[in-house]
């Protein structure tokens, strides 16, 4: 079997890997092992999901796998890329005079959230999806958009730069919770629809011997359950980091006065 890939995907991959390597070479610094692992994880995830057999099945109208690709692009690859980016690599870009104002605006949590929500909902809005995603032969552009909004989405949680502070832990939890709106708003109608929503998927047999309807329900469930479980894990991870951190931190901002309970005597005529 020939491992095929879409040109657009290859371009994105090349840009990512090339950029990473170029920065490392130019700045003559070496990312840590963990960063390298995270970054290669991201690349592997993209390669696995967007090229080869998976992509082949998507082109044969497997809606479920198409949803899986999207989840990888917005939920798996961006956090790994951010985790794999050292601060010295991000700094020259994000503190650049021309880029900084835009970057500051885009990485404001609410802006990032709305941008992601809007993009994600729009990509799945049937008229848009049918016109852009499928009639148009290039998939790569939609994928790139998803990867980009994914990166922006995760930035407030995983910012590699102290200059771009991360959200506080409680706010991170809130942010994750907020994410359920676009995800549910997109996934629930697809799953519960009474007919096939996207014209592109009405036709023909789908891979794995699924009927178009069954494929759609499966895809909807993958998105719904998949994001639910995934976000639950992210929420748990954030929560326990928060717990551990508060557990270890001494009281801030106050004199460490030892607890002094009241006297045993009943008299208060002091």
């Amino acid at each position: 079997m020939i491992w095929e890939a879409d040109p657009a995907t290859l371009i994105v991959l090349a840009l990512l890997v090339g950029g990473y390597a170029a920065f490392a070479l130019a700045l003559k610094r070496w990312p840590t092992v963990i960063q390298l692992i995270a970054f290669s994880g991201a690349i592997l995830a993209i390669v696995g999901a967007l090229t080869g057999p998976v992509d082949e099945l998507v082109k044969q109208r497997s809606f479920a796998l198409y949803i899986f690709q999207q989840l990888v692009l917005v939920f798996i690859a961006p956090p790994l890329i951010l985790a794999g980016t050292p601060d010295w690599m991000a700094r020259p870009v994000l503190t650049h005079r021309l880029i900084e104002p835009l970057a500051r605006f885009l990485t404001r949590p609410l802006v990032a959230y709305i941008l992601f929500g809007a993009a994600f909902a729009l990509v799945h809005f049937p008229p848009v999806c049918d016109r852009v995603c499928h009639v148009h032969p290039v998939y790569g552009d939609v994928d790139t958009v998803l990867l980009l909004v994914g990166l922006i989405l995760w930035f407030p949680l995983l910012s590699p730069l102290p200059e771009y502070p991360r959200l506080s832990y409680p706010m991170q939890v809130m942010y994750i919770f907020l994410l359920m709106i676009p995800m549910t708003a997109v996934a629930a109608p697809i799953t519960m629809a009474q007919s096939v929503v996207y014209i592109y998927y009405v036709e023909g047999p789908h891979p794995f011997g699924l009927s178009p309807m069954a494929d759609q329900v499966l895809g909807g469930i993958i998105m719904w359950v998949g994001q639910g479980v995934y976000l639950m894990f992210v929420f748990s991870a954030i929560f326990f980091r928060w717990a551990r951190r508060e557990d270890e931190t001494p009281p801030f901002n106050r004199r460490p006065v030892p607890l002094r309970p009241l006297p045993r005597q009943r008299s208060h005529a002091i």
């Binding site: 001494p250 009281p251 106050r254 004199r255 460490p256 006065v257 030892p258 607890l259 002094r260 309970p261």
Partner: peptide, 12 residues
């Protein structure tokens, strides 16, 4: 009171 730990009274 100023609290320095969980189970503050026990710690005191």
């Amino acid at each position: 009171p100023t609290v320095t730990a969980r189970d503050a009274f026990w710690v005191a």
